[in-house]
Design a binder for these strands. Structure first.
Length: 578
RNA sequence: GGGGGCGUAGCUCAAUGGUAGAGCAGCGGACUCUUAAUCCGUUGGUUGUAGGUUCGAGCCCUACCGCCCCCA
Protein backbone atom coordinates (compact mmCIF):
# COMPACT_ATOMS: atom_id res chain seq x y z
CA UNK A 1 0.00 0.00 0.00
CA UNK A 2 1.32 3.34 -0.94
CA UNK A 3 0.07 6.26 1.04
CA UNK A 4 0.55 9.41 -0.94
CA UNK A 5 2.30 12.20 0.84
CA UNK A 6 -0.04 14.93 1.83
CA UNK A 7 1.72 17.73 0.07
CA UNK A 8 0.07 20.73 1.56
CA UNK A 9 -1.01 23.47 -0.73
CA UNK A 10 1.50 25.78 0.87
CA UNK A 11 4.44 23.52 0.12
CA UNK A 12 6.35 24.70 -2.90
CA UNK A 13 8.19 22.61 -5.42
CA UNK A 14 11.79 21.72 -4.79
CA UNK A 15 13.02 24.67 -6.73
CA UNK A 16 11.39 27.71 -5.24
CA UNK A 17 12.37 29.90 -8.12
CA UNK A 18 11.77 33.57 -7.71
CA UNK A 19 8.33 33.46 -9.19
CA UNK A 20 6.73 34.78 -6.04
CA UNK A 21 5.75 37.80 -8.05
CA UNK A 22 3.14 35.59 -9.67
CA UNK A 23 1.55 35.09 -6.28
CA UNK A 24 2.24 38.30 -4.45
CA UNK A 25 -0.41 37.53 -1.87
CA UNK A 26 1.43 34.40 -0.74
CA UNK A 27 3.08 34.82 2.66
CA UNK A 28 6.86 34.61 2.49
CA UNK A 29 7.96 31.06 3.16
CA UNK A 30 10.12 30.51 6.20
CA UNK A 31 13.33 28.55 5.95
CA UNK A 32 12.01 25.67 7.99
CA UNK A 33 8.81 25.50 6.00
CA UNK A 34 10.81 25.43 2.81
CA UNK A 35 13.02 22.61 4.08
CA UNK A 36 9.99 20.62 5.18
CA UNK A 37 8.40 21.28 1.81
CA UNK A 38 11.47 19.97 0.01
CA UNK A 39 11.48 16.85 2.12
CA UNK A 40 7.77 16.31 1.50
CA UNK A 41 8.45 16.64 -2.21
CA UNK A 42 11.05 13.90 -1.96
CA UNK A 43 8.47 11.74 -0.24
CA UNK A 44 6.09 12.39 -3.11
CA UNK A 45 8.82 11.47 -5.57
CA UNK A 46 9.38 8.21 -3.70
CA UNK A 47 5.66 7.48 -3.78
CA UNK A 48 5.48 8.31 -7.47
CA UNK A 49 8.23 5.76 -8.06
CA UNK A 50 6.12 3.16 -6.27
CA UNK A 51 8.06 3.40 -3.05
CA UNK A 52 5.86 4.23 -0.10
CA UNK A 53 7.84 6.66 2.07
CA UNK A 54 6.09 5.34 5.19
CA UNK A 55 6.25 1.61 4.76
CA UNK A 56 6.38 -1.24 7.23
CA UNK A 57 7.23 -4.29 5.21
CA UNK A 58 10.99 -4.49 5.66
CA UNK A 59 12.31 -5.62 9.04
CA UNK A 60 16.03 -5.70 9.72
CA UNK A 61 17.53 -9.11 10.26
CA UNK A 62 20.65 -7.74 11.89
CA UNK A 63 21.56 -5.30 14.58
CA UNK A 64 24.47 -3.06 13.74
CA UNK A 65 26.41 -3.93 16.89
CA UNK A 66 26.10 -7.63 16.03
CA UNK A 67 27.36 -7.01 12.51
CA UNK A 68 30.29 -5.08 13.87
CA UNK A 69 31.08 -7.78 16.39
CA UNK A 70 30.90 -10.45 13.70
CA UNK A 71 33.26 -8.68 11.32
CA UNK A 72 35.65 -6.74 13.55
CA UNK A 73 38.26 -9.49 13.40
CA UNK A 74 38.28 -9.44 9.60
CA UNK A 75 39.77 -5.97 9.43
CA UNK A 76 42.65 -5.98 6.97
CA UNK A 77 46.10 -4.94 8.09
CA UNK A 78 46.82 -1.27 7.66
CA UNK A 79 49.34 -2.00 4.89
CA UNK A 80 47.10 -4.49 3.07
CA UNK A 81 46.81 -3.95 -0.67
CA UNK A 82 43.35 -2.96 -1.80
CA UNK A 83 42.00 -4.37 -5.02
CA UNK A 84 38.67 -2.70 -5.60
CA UNK A 85 35.71 -3.43 -3.42
CA UNK A 86 35.87 -6.95 -2.05
CA UNK A 87 33.22 -8.09 0.43
CA UNK A 88 34.61 -10.02 3.35
CA UNK A 89 32.48 -13.10 2.79
CA UNK A 90 29.56 -12.10 0.62
CA UNK A 91 27.03 -12.80 3.36
CA UNK A 92 24.15 -10.41 3.04
CA UNK A 93 23.35 -8.43 6.16
CA UNK A 94 20.22 -6.39 6.55
CA UNK A 95 20.09 -3.48 8.94
CA UNK A 96 17.74 -0.60 9.60
CA UNK A 97 18.06 2.72 11.33
CA UNK A 98 18.41 6.44 10.86
CA UNK A 99 20.62 8.01 8.21
CA UNK A 100 22.88 10.37 10.16
CA UNK A 101 24.61 12.10 7.23
CA UNK A 102 24.91 11.89 3.49
CA UNK A 103 28.19 12.41 1.67
CA UNK A 104 27.70 12.32 -2.08
CA UNK A 105 30.27 11.70 -4.80
CA UNK A 106 28.16 11.61 -7.88
CA UNK A 107 27.97 7.90 -8.46
CA UNK A 108 28.79 7.02 -4.86
CA UNK A 109 27.19 8.04 -1.60
CA UNK A 110 28.47 7.37 1.90
CA UNK A 111 25.83 7.44 4.59
CA UNK A 112 26.40 6.52 8.23
CA UNK A 113 23.43 4.60 9.61
CA UNK A 114 22.49 4.40 13.29
CA UNK A 115 20.29 1.89 15.04
CA UNK A 116 19.75 1.41 18.76
CA UNK A 117 22.99 -0.49 19.08
CA UNK A 118 25.62 1.32 17.03
CA UNK A 119 26.51 3.11 13.79
CA UNK A 120 27.75 1.65 10.53
CA UNK A 121 28.53 3.24 7.20
CA UNK A 122 26.49 2.45 4.11
CA UNK A 123 28.34 2.54 0.79
CA UNK A 124 25.78 3.29 -1.90
CA UNK A 125 27.31 2.92 -5.30
CA UNK A 126 25.96 2.85 -8.85
CA UNK A 127 27.73 -0.41 -9.67
CA UNK A 128 26.36 -2.29 -6.69
CA UNK A 129 23.07 -0.78 -5.63
CA UNK A 130 19.90 -1.94 -7.33
CA UNK A 131 19.45 0.31 -10.35
CA UNK A 132 15.94 1.32 -9.36
CA UNK A 133 17.05 2.16 -5.85
CA UNK A 134 19.94 4.21 -7.20
CA UNK A 135 17.70 6.12 -9.52
CA UNK A 136 14.62 6.61 -7.36
CA UNK A 137 15.57 6.16 -3.72
CA UNK A 138 19.04 7.64 -3.37
CA UNK A 139 18.24 11.09 -4.79
CA UNK A 140 15.33 11.36 -2.38
CA UNK A 141 17.34 10.30 0.65
CA UNK A 142 18.02 12.82 3.42
CA UNK A 143 19.90 12.73 6.66
CA UNK A 144 17.32 11.78 9.23
CA UNK A 145 15.42 9.28 7.11
CA UNK A 146 14.77 5.83 8.56
CA UNK A 147 15.95 3.24 6.07
CA UNK A 148 16.65 -0.43 5.69
CA UNK A 149 19.68 -1.59 3.74
CA UNK A 150 20.88 -4.94 2.54
CA UNK A 151 24.30 -5.94 1.32
CA UNK A 152 27.56 -7.62 2.22
CA UNK A 153 30.16 -6.16 4.55
CA UNK A 154 33.45 -4.82 3.20
CA UNK A 155 36.28 -2.64 4.42
CA UNK A 156 37.11 0.66 2.78
CA UNK A 157 40.66 1.68 1.99
CA UNK A 158 40.57 3.87 5.06
CA UNK A 159 39.69 0.87 7.18
CA UNK A 160 36.05 1.70 7.82
CA UNK A 161 33.69 -1.25 8.05
CA UNK A 162 30.89 -0.58 5.57
CA UNK A 163 27.89 -2.22 4.03
CA UNK A 164 28.07 -2.49 0.26
CA UNK A 165 24.45 -1.67 -0.36
CA UNK A 166 22.52 -3.86 -2.79
CA UNK A 167 19.08 -2.69 -1.73
CA UNK A 168 17.92 0.47 0.01
CA UNK A 169 14.44 1.16 1.33
CA UNK A 170 13.22 4.38 2.85
CA UNK A 171 10.96 3.18 5.64
CA UNK A 172 10.14 6.56 7.12
CA UNK A 173 10.69 9.85 5.37
CA UNK A 174 11.95 12.39 7.91
CA UNK A 175 10.33 15.75 7.28
CA UNK A 176 12.33 17.94 9.63
CA UNK A 177 16.06 18.60 9.48
CA UNK A 178 18.37 17.23 12.17
CA UNK A 179 20.54 19.66 14.14
CA UNK A 180 24.05 20.59 13.10
CA UNK A 181 25.93 17.37 12.43
CA UNK A 182 29.04 18.53 14.25
CA UNK A 183 27.74 20.54 17.19
CA UNK A 184 24.56 18.57 17.67
CA UNK A 185 21.81 19.97 19.81
CA UNK A 186 23.44 22.37 22.27
CA UNK A 187 20.45 24.38 23.42
CA UNK A 188 19.55 22.70 26.72
CA UNK A 189 15.99 23.89 26.54
CA UNK A 190 15.51 22.24 23.15
CA UNK A 191 17.30 19.14 24.40
CA UNK A 192 14.73 18.72 27.18
CA UNK A 193 11.70 19.79 25.19
CA UNK A 194 12.60 17.72 22.16
CA UNK A 195 14.36 14.80 23.83
CA UNK A 196 13.65 12.71 20.73
CA UNK A 197 16.01 14.94 18.77
CA UNK A 198 18.57 14.95 21.58
CA UNK A 199 18.58 11.15 21.72
CA UNK A 200 18.60 10.80 17.95
CA UNK A 201 21.75 12.84 17.49
CA UNK A 202 23.64 12.46 20.78
CA UNK A 203 25.11 9.05 21.57
CA UNK A 204 26.33 10.40 24.93
CA UNK A 205 22.78 11.16 25.96
CA UNK A 206 21.62 7.73 24.87
CA UNK A 207 24.43 6.25 26.93
CA UNK A 208 23.33 8.07 30.08
CA UNK A 209 19.83 6.70 29.81
CA UNK A 210 21.07 3.25 28.91
CA UNK A 211 23.12 3.34 32.09
CA UNK A 212 20.14 4.50 34.07
CA UNK A 213 18.24 1.50 32.81
CA UNK A 214 21.15 -0.77 33.75
CA UNK A 215 21.18 0.71 37.25
CA UNK A 216 17.52 -0.10 37.77
CA UNK A 217 17.98 -3.58 36.36
CA UNK A 218 21.05 -4.09 38.55
CA UNK A 219 19.14 -3.05 41.65
CA UNK A 220 16.32 -5.47 40.88
CA UNK A 221 18.78 -8.27 40.35
CA UNK A 222 20.64 -7.43 43.56
CA UNK A 223 17.47 -7.43 45.64
CA UNK A 224 15.87 -10.40 43.92
CA UNK A 225 18.99 -12.44 44.65
CA UNK A 226 18.46 -11.60 48.31
CA UNK A 227 14.87 -12.80 48.29
CA UNK A 228 13.22 -9.39 48.28
CA UNK A 229 9.77 -9.28 46.73
CA UNK A 230 9.01 -6.46 44.33
CA UNK A 231 5.61 -4.96 45.01
CA UNK A 232 3.47 -2.06 43.88
CA UNK A 233 1.67 0.11 46.39
CA UNK A 234 -0.69 3.03 45.80
CA UNK A 235 0.53 6.21 44.15
CA UNK A 236 -2.61 8.05 45.24
CA UNK A 237 -2.93 8.35 49.00
CA UNK A 238 -5.86 9.54 51.08
CA UNK A 239 -3.44 11.05 53.59
CA UNK A 240 0.09 12.39 53.36
CA UNK A 241 2.72 10.16 54.87
CA UNK A 242 6.14 8.59 54.75
CA UNK A 243 8.22 11.70 54.29
CA UNK A 244 8.40 15.40 55.00
CA UNK A 245 7.26 17.15 51.84
CA UNK A 246 4.40 19.06 50.32
CA UNK A 247 2.11 16.92 48.20
CA UNK A 248 0.26 17.32 44.93
CA UNK A 249 -3.45 17.21 45.55
CA UNK A 250 -5.94 15.60 43.21
CA UNK A 251 -9.51 14.47 43.32
CA UNK A 252 -11.36 11.29 42.56
CA UNK A 253 -14.74 12.07 41.05
CA UNK A 254 -16.69 8.88 41.64
CA UNK A 255 -15.80 8.74 45.30
CA UNK A 256 -15.73 12.54 45.56
CA UNK A 257 -12.53 12.14 47.49
CA UNK A 258 -9.43 14.24 47.86
CA UNK A 259 -6.27 12.30 47.10
CA UNK A 260 -2.59 13.10 47.40
CA UNK A 261 0.01 11.92 44.93
CA UNK A 262 2.32 9.95 47.13
CA UNK A 263 5.43 11.57 48.54
CA UNK A 264 6.74 8.17 49.66
CA UNK A 265 5.53 4.56 49.72
CA UNK A 266 6.97 3.89 53.17
CA UNK A 267 3.87 3.34 55.26
CA UNK A 268 2.34 0.94 52.73
CA UNK A 269 5.50 -1.09 52.40
CA UNK A 270 5.71 -1.47 56.15
CA UNK A 271 2.10 -2.64 56.22
CA UNK A 272 3.30 -5.43 53.94
CA UNK A 273 6.04 -6.29 56.39
CA UNK A 274 3.32 -6.57 59.04
CA UNK A 275 1.51 -8.89 56.64
CA UNK A 276 4.49 -11.19 56.43
CA UNK A 277 6.18 -10.01 53.25
CA UNK A 278 9.21 -9.29 55.35
CA UNK A 279 11.56 -8.44 52.49
CA UNK A 280 9.89 -6.10 50.02
CA UNK A 281 10.91 -3.36 47.64
CA UNK A 282 9.32 -0.94 45.25
CA UNK A 283 10.89 1.15 42.53
CA UNK A 284 8.52 3.83 41.43
CA UNK A 285 7.69 7.48 41.23
CA UNK A 286 7.22 9.86 44.14
CA UNK A 287 5.76 13.33 43.75
CA UNK A 288 6.72 16.34 45.80
CA UNK A 289 5.22 19.73 45.23
CA UNK A 290 8.42 21.70 45.52
CA UNK A 291 10.65 23.88 43.43
CA UNK A 292 12.73 22.67 40.52
CA UNK A 293 16.49 22.71 40.66
CA UNK A 294 19.54 20.90 39.47
CA UNK A 295 18.78 18.21 42.01
CA UNK A 296 14.98 18.32 42.27
CA UNK A 297 12.28 17.29 39.86
CA UNK A 298 8.69 17.25 41.14
CA UNK A 299 8.33 13.63 40.13
CA UNK A 300 11.28 11.42 40.80
CA UNK A 301 12.04 7.76 41.14
CA UNK A 302 12.70 6.11 44.45
CA UNK A 303 13.75 2.66 45.50
CA UNK A 304 12.40 1.74 48.90
CA UNK A 305 13.09 -1.60 50.51
CA UNK A 306 12.39 -3.18 53.87
CA UNK A 307 14.16 -6.09 55.47
CA UNK A 308 12.85 -7.66 58.65
CA UNK A 309 15.24 -8.80 61.35
CA UNK A 310 17.82 -6.31 60.08
CA UNK A 311 19.17 -3.08 61.56
CA UNK A 312 20.14 0.20 59.98
CA UNK A 313 23.71 -1.00 60.35
CA UNK A 314 22.95 -3.99 58.12
CA UNK A 315 21.47 -1.65 55.53
CA UNK A 316 24.54 0.56 55.49
CA UNK A 317 26.59 -2.52 54.68
CA UNK A 318 24.07 -3.57 52.04
CA UNK A 319 24.10 -0.09 50.50
CA UNK A 320 27.88 -0.01 50.22
CA UNK A 321 27.81 -3.35 48.49
CA UNK A 322 24.95 -2.40 46.18
CA UNK A 323 26.34 0.95 45.05
CA UNK A 324 29.91 -0.24 44.67
CA UNK A 325 28.78 -3.24 42.63
CA UNK A 326 26.56 -1.06 40.45
CA UNK A 327 29.49 1.26 39.81
CA UNK A 328 31.65 -1.64 38.72
CA UNK A 329 28.88 -3.12 36.63
CA UNK A 330 28.10 0.13 34.86
CA UNK A 331 31.40 1.94 34.69
CA UNK A 332 33.85 -0.86 35.36
CA UNK A 333 35.28 1.11 38.26
CA UNK A 334 34.30 2.41 41.67
CA UNK A 335 35.75 5.82 40.98
CA UNK A 336 33.52 8.38 39.32
CA UNK A 337 33.87 12.07 38.65
CA UNK A 338 30.92 14.10 39.80
CA UNK A 339 30.71 17.87 40.20
CA UNK A 340 34.34 17.98 39.13
CA UNK A 341 35.40 15.83 42.07
CA UNK A 342 36.70 12.29 41.93
CA UNK A 343 34.59 10.15 44.21
CA UNK A 344 35.57 6.63 45.23
CA UNK A 345 32.60 4.41 45.91
CA UNK A 346 34.64 1.43 47.05
CA UNK A 347 33.51 0.17 50.47
CA UNK A 348 33.77 0.89 53.31
CA UNK A 349 32.52 4.44 53.52
CA UNK A 350 33.03 6.91 56.29
CA UNK A 351 30.40 6.87 59.04
CA UNK A 352 29.82 10.01 61.00
CA UNK A 353 27.15 11.04 63.46
CA UNK A 354 25.24 14.26 62.83
CA UNK A 355 26.79 15.66 65.99
CA UNK A 356 30.31 14.76 64.87
CA UNK A 357 29.64 16.35 61.51
CA UNK A 358 28.54 19.57 63.17
CA UNK A 359 31.73 19.60 65.21
CA UNK A 360 34.34 18.48 62.69
CA UNK A 361 32.86 19.83 59.45
CA UNK A 362 30.64 22.62 60.75
CA UNK A 363 33.38 23.90 63.02
CA UNK A 364 31.11 24.13 66.09
CA UNK A 365 33.46 23.29 68.95
CA UNK A 366 30.81 22.50 71.53
CA UNK A 367 28.56 20.43 69.31
CA UNK A 368 27.47 18.32 72.26
CA UNK A 369 25.95 21.38 73.91
CA UNK A 370 24.12 22.24 70.69
CA UNK A 371 22.30 18.92 70.87
CA UNK A 372 21.34 19.25 74.54
CA UNK A 373 20.80 22.95 75.16
CA UNK A 374 18.18 24.52 72.91
CA UNK A 375 19.07 28.08 73.94
CA UNK A 376 22.66 27.55 72.88
CA UNK A 377 21.49 25.81 69.73
CA UNK A 378 19.42 28.88 68.85
CA UNK A 379 22.51 31.08 69.18
CA UNK A 380 24.59 28.80 67.01
CA UNK A 381 21.88 28.49 64.37
CA UNK A 382 21.46 32.25 64.21
CA UNK A 383 25.20 32.76 63.94
CA UNK A 384 25.47 30.30 61.08
CA UNK A 385 22.69 31.56 58.89
CA UNK A 386 19.84 29.20 59.66
CA UNK A 387 16.71 31.07 58.53
CA UNK A 388 14.85 32.74 61.40
CA UNK A 389 11.59 31.10 60.38
CA UNK A 390 13.10 27.64 60.75
CA UNK A 391 14.59 28.48 64.14
CA UNK A 392 11.31 29.92 65.35
CA UNK A 393 9.36 26.85 64.31
CA UNK A 394 11.84 24.39 65.79
CA UNK A 395 11.68 26.19 69.11
CA UNK A 396 7.89 26.53 69.07
CA UNK A 397 7.29 22.85 68.49
CA UNK A 398 8.28 22.05 72.07
CA UNK A 399 5.57 24.19 73.57
CA UNK A 400 2.53 22.04 74.45
CA UNK A 401 -0.44 22.56 72.17
CA UNK A 402 -2.92 25.05 73.51
CA UNK A 403 -0.41 26.94 75.62
CA UNK A 404 -0.85 30.69 75.42
CA UNK A 405 2.44 31.96 74.00
CA UNK A 406 4.13 34.97 75.61
CA UNK A 407 4.53 36.38 72.12
CA UNK A 408 2.09 36.51 69.21
CA UNK A 409 2.67 33.42 67.10
CA UNK A 410 2.60 35.37 63.86
CA UNK A 411 5.43 37.62 65.03
CA UNK A 412 7.80 34.90 66.16
CA UNK A 413 9.77 34.75 62.94
CA UNK A 414 10.20 38.50 62.95
CA UNK A 415 11.36 38.41 66.56
CA UNK A 416 13.90 35.70 65.78
CA UNK A 417 15.45 38.05 63.27
CA UNK A 418 16.21 40.56 66.01
CA UNK A 419 18.44 40.76 69.06
CA UNK A 420 15.45 39.73 71.14
CA UNK A 421 15.92 36.24 69.75
CA UNK A 422 17.55 34.76 72.83
CA UNK A 423 15.04 36.27 75.23
CA UNK A 424 12.13 34.99 73.19
CA UNK A 425 13.72 31.58 72.86
CA UNK A 426 14.30 31.38 76.61
CA UNK A 427 10.68 32.26 77.28
CA UNK A 428 9.47 29.51 74.96
CA UNK A 429 11.94 26.97 76.27
CA UNK A 430 10.68 27.69 79.78
CA UNK A 431 7.29 26.36 78.68
CA UNK A 432 8.67 22.96 77.70
CA UNK A 433 7.17 20.18 79.79
CA UNK A 434 10.35 18.13 80.26
CA UNK A 435 14.09 17.82 79.89
CA UNK A 436 13.41 15.27 77.14
CA UNK A 437 11.56 17.87 75.11
CA UNK A 438 14.43 20.29 75.61
CA UNK A 439 16.84 17.76 74.17
CA UNK A 440 14.51 16.86 71.31
CA UNK A 441 14.21 20.54 70.39
CA UNK A 442 17.96 20.98 70.68
CA UNK A 443 18.37 18.03 68.35
CA UNK A 444 16.05 19.61 65.81
CA UNK A 445 18.06 22.83 65.88
CA UNK A 446 21.28 20.82 65.74
CA UNK A 447 20.07 19.24 62.54
CA UNK A 448 19.30 22.66 61.04
CA UNK A 449 22.82 23.64 62.02
CA UNK A 450 24.17 20.55 60.28
CA UNK A 451 22.38 21.52 57.09
CA UNK A 452 23.74 25.04 57.29
CA UNK A 453 27.34 24.24 58.14
CA UNK A 454 28.29 20.69 57.28
CA UNK A 455 26.05 19.11 54.68
CA UNK A 456 27.84 20.35 51.60
CA UNK A 457 31.18 19.24 53.01
CA UNK A 458 30.24 15.58 52.82
CA UNK A 459 31.97 14.99 49.53
CA UNK A 460 33.30 11.44 49.58
CA UNK A 461 30.57 8.88 50.27
CA UNK A 462 29.58 9.23 53.90
CA UNK A 463 26.92 7.66 56.08
CA UNK A 464 25.63 10.33 58.37
CA UNK A 465 24.20 8.55 61.43
CA UNK A 466 22.32 9.15 64.67
CA UNK A 467 19.66 11.56 63.49
CA UNK A 468 17.76 13.69 65.98
CA UNK A 469 14.37 12.29 66.90
CA UNK A 470 12.49 15.41 65.88
CA UNK A 471 13.40 15.04 62.21
CA UNK A 472 12.84 11.27 62.17
CA UNK A 473 9.19 10.55 62.95
CA UNK A 474 9.24 6.97 61.67
CA UNK A 475 12.63 5.80 62.91
CA UNK A 476 13.48 3.67 65.92
CA UNK A 477 15.03 5.39 68.91
CA UNK A 478 18.59 4.64 69.81
CA UNK A 479 18.71 2.35 72.84
CA UNK A 480 21.18 4.54 74.68
CA UNK A 481 20.21 8.01 73.53
CA UNK A 482 16.43 8.40 73.25
CA UNK A 483 16.67 11.80 71.57
CA UNK A 484 18.41 10.18 68.61
CA UNK A 485 17.34 7.56 66.09
CA UNK A 486 19.07 4.61 64.50
CA UNK A 487 18.97 6.31 61.18
CA UNK A 488 21.46 7.18 58.46
CA UNK A 489 21.61 9.17 55.29
CA UNK A 490 24.12 8.65 52.54
CA UNK A 491 25.78 11.79 51.21
CA UNK A 492 28.00 12.17 48.17
CA UNK A 493 29.19 15.57 46.98
CA UNK A 494 26.90 17.21 49.52
CA UNK A 495 23.86 15.54 48.04
CA UNK A 496 21.59 13.12 49.85
CA UNK A 497 21.46 9.83 47.98
CA UNK A 498 19.84 7.48 50.46
CA UNK A 499 17.99 7.50 53.75
CA UNK A 500 17.50 4.46 55.96
CA UNK A 501 16.75 3.47 59.48
CA UNK A 502 15.77 0.82 61.89
CA UNK A 503 12.01 1.08 61.86
CA UNK A 504 9.94 2.32 64.71
CA UNK A 505 7.52 -0.55 65.44
CA UNK A 506 6.21 0.50 68.85
CA UNK A 507 2.67 1.68 68.10
CA UNK A 508 2.45 3.92 71.14
CA UNK A 509 5.68 5.69 70.32
CA UNK A 510 4.51 6.00 66.71
CA UNK A 511 1.31 7.65 67.88
CA UNK A 512 3.36 10.10 69.91
CA UNK A 513 5.50 10.86 66.86
CA UNK A 514 2.45 11.51 64.71
CA UNK A 515 1.11 13.76 67.43
CA UNK A 516 4.38 15.68 67.37
CA UNK A 517 3.96 16.09 63.62
CA UNK A 518 0.53 17.57 64.18
CA UNK A 519 2.07 19.96 66.67
CA UNK A 520 4.73 20.95 64.16
CA UNK A 521 2.03 21.61 61.60
CA UNK A 522 0.15 23.70 64.13
CA UNK A 523 3.13 26.02 64.53
CA UNK A 524 3.57 26.47 60.82
CA UNK A 525 5.66 23.59 59.47
CA UNK A 526 4.38 22.85 55.98
CA UNK A 527 6.31 19.64 55.41
CA UNK A 528 4.70 17.29 57.87
CA UNK A 529 3.03 13.89 57.88
CA UNK A 530 -0.60 13.33 58.59
CA UNK A 531 -1.63 11.17 61.51
CA UNK A 532 -2.09 7.70 60.02
CA UNK A 533 -4.31 5.76 62.38
CA UNK A 534 -4.54 2.70 60.15
CA UNK A 535 -0.76 2.49 60.11
CA UNK A 536 -0.75 2.56 63.90
CA UNK A 537 -3.34 -0.20 63.88
CA UNK A 538 -1.03 -2.23 61.65
CA UNK A 539 1.79 -1.73 64.13
CA UNK A 540 -0.53 -3.03 66.82
CA UNK A 541 -0.91 -6.23 64.85
CA UNK A 542 2.87 -6.27 65.09
CA UNK A 543 5.70 -5.45 62.72
CA UNK A 544 8.81 -7.54 63.20
CA UNK A 545 12.02 -5.66 63.91
CA UNK A 546 12.83 -4.19 60.53
CA UNK A 547 15.15 -1.80 58.79
CA UNK A 548 14.15 0.11 55.70
CA UNK A 549 15.75 2.45 53.21
CA UNK A 550 15.02 4.70 50.31
CA UNK A 551 17.49 5.40 47.54
CA UNK A 552 16.90 8.21 45.09
CA UNK A 553 17.33 6.58 41.71
CA UNK A 554 17.71 9.86 39.85
CA UNK A 555 20.53 11.07 42.08
CA UNK A 556 22.15 7.66 42.02
CA UNK A 557 22.00 7.80 38.25
CA UNK A 558 23.52 11.29 38.35
CA UNK A 559 26.34 9.99 40.52
CA UNK A 560 27.05 6.93 38.40
CA UNK A 561 26.84 8.80 35.10
CA UNK A 562 28.57 11.97 36.29
CA UNK A 563 25.67 14.25 35.40
CA UNK A 564 25.40 17.57 37.24
CA UNK A 565 21.70 18.10 36.65
CA UNK A 566 18.81 15.79 37.47
CA UNK A 567 17.29 16.88 34.16
CA UNK A 568 20.05 15.03 32.40
CA UNK A 569 18.98 11.72 33.92
CA UNK A 570 15.23 12.23 33.50
CA UNK A 571 14.04 11.67 29.94
CA UNK A 572 11.31 14.28 30.07
CA UNK A 573 11.94 16.70 32.93
CA UNK A 574 9.13 19.02 33.90
CA UNK A 575 9.11 22.23 31.84
CA UNK A 576 6.75 25.10 31.46
CA UNK A 577 4.62 24.69 28.35
CA UNK A 578 6.16 26.18 25.23
C1' G B 1 10.16 34.67 45.87
C1' G B 2 15.26 37.59 45.20
C1' G B 3 19.86 38.28 42.26
C1' G B 4 22.72 37.29 37.80
C1' G B 5 23.08 35.45 32.70
C1' C B 6 21.04 34.05 28.02
C1' G B 7 17.26 34.33 23.77
C1' U B 8 19.82 36.48 16.19
C1' A B 9 18.49 31.62 9.78
C1' G B 10 16.48 24.56 10.59
C1' C B 11 21.31 23.84 13.81
C1' U B 12 26.03 26.11 15.96
C1' C B 13 27.49 31.01 16.52
C1' A B 14 29.14 36.46 14.93
C1' A B 15 27.68 41.59 14.49
C1' U B 16 31.19 50.27 18.64
C1' G B 17 23.79 52.64 18.57
C1' G B 18 24.83 53.36 11.72
C1' U B 19 23.13 48.40 5.21
C1' A B 20 21.89 41.72 10.17
C1' G B 21 26.76 38.01 8.75
C1' A B 22 29.55 33.15 8.82
C1' G B 23 29.93 27.74 9.15
C1' C B 24 26.83 23.54 8.79
C1' A B 25 22.22 21.90 6.79
C1' G B 26 19.17 22.95 2.28
C1' C B 27 18.92 23.96 -3.17
C1' G B 28 21.72 23.81 -8.30
C1' G B 29 26.34 21.96 -10.48
C1' A B 30 31.24 18.85 -10.52
C1' C B 31 33.15 14.42 -8.36
C1' U B 32 33.06 6.16 -7.95
C1' C B 33 37.05 4.93 -1.01
C1' U B 34 34.45 9.56 2.02
C1' U B 35 34.03 9.92 7.26
C1' A B 36 33.15 17.67 10.10
C1' A B 37 34.53 14.94 2.29
C1' U B 38 36.13 18.74 -1.26
C1' C B 39 35.25 22.51 -5.10
C1' C B 40 31.86 26.25 -7.76
C1' G B 41 27.24 28.74 -7.34
C1' U B 42 22.92 29.84 -4.34
C1' U B 43 18.12 30.30 -1.25
C1' G B 44 17.03 31.54 3.53
C1' G B 45 15.83 36.79 9.02
C1' U B 46 9.11 40.43 12.00
C1' U B 47 16.98 39.53 15.97
C1' G B 48 11.57 35.72 22.05
C1' U B 49 6.96 39.32 22.64
C1' A B 50 5.06 44.35 23.46
C1' G B 51 6.20 49.18 24.35
C1' G B 52 9.83 53.29 24.94
C1' U B 53 14.45 56.46 24.12
C1' U B 54 16.96 57.99 19.50
C1' C B 55 17.77 61.04 13.14
C1' G B 56 18.72 55.75 13.53
C1' A B 57 17.95 49.93 18.12
C1' G B 58 19.93 42.94 17.52
C1' C B 59 22.67 46.41 20.80
C1' C B 60 20.15 51.37 25.44
C1' C B 61 15.42 51.57 28.87
C1' U B 62 10.60 49.23 30.79
C1' A B 63 7.30 45.19 31.10
C1' C B 64 6.19 40.35 29.83
C1' C B 65 7.46 35.07 28.00
C1' G B 66 11.01 31.01 28.04
C1' C B 67 15.63 28.69 29.53
C1' C B 68 20.20 28.37 32.63
C1' C B 69 22.98 29.48 37.23
C1' C B 70 23.14 31.20 42.35
C1' C B 71 20.37 32.29 46.72
C1' A B 72 15.73 31.70 49.83
Amino acid sequence: MVRPMSTSGAAKPGKPAKNTAATPEAAPEKTLDRIIGERRDKGVALANAGRNPFRNDVAPRDQIADVRARYTATKPAADAVHEGIVPVDGTMVQVAGRIMAKRGFGKTVFAPLRDRSDDIQLYLNVDNLDAGDFEHVLPNLDAGDIVACEGPVFWTKRGEMSILAKRLWVLTKSLRPLPDKWHGLADVELRYRQRYVDLAVSPDVREVFRKRSMIVRGIRQFLDERNFLEVETPMMHPIVGGAAARPFVTHHNALDMRLFMRIAPELYLKRLVVGGFDRVYEINRNFRNEGLSRRHNPEFTMLEFYQAYATYDDLMNLTEELVASLAKQINGATKVTWDGVEVDLAAPWQRLTVQEAVRTLGGIADAERVFTDPAYAVQMCAQHGVPAADIARAISEGVPAGTVLPYPADQLTALFKTEERDTVAAALIALYPSEHVRRVRAGHLGYLLFEATAEDKLVQPTFLTQFPLAVSPLARRNENAPEFCDRFELFVCGKEIANGFSELNDPDDQRARFAAQMQAKAVGADETMDYDEDYCRALEIGMPPTAGEGIGIDRLAMLLTGQASIRDVILFPLMRPE
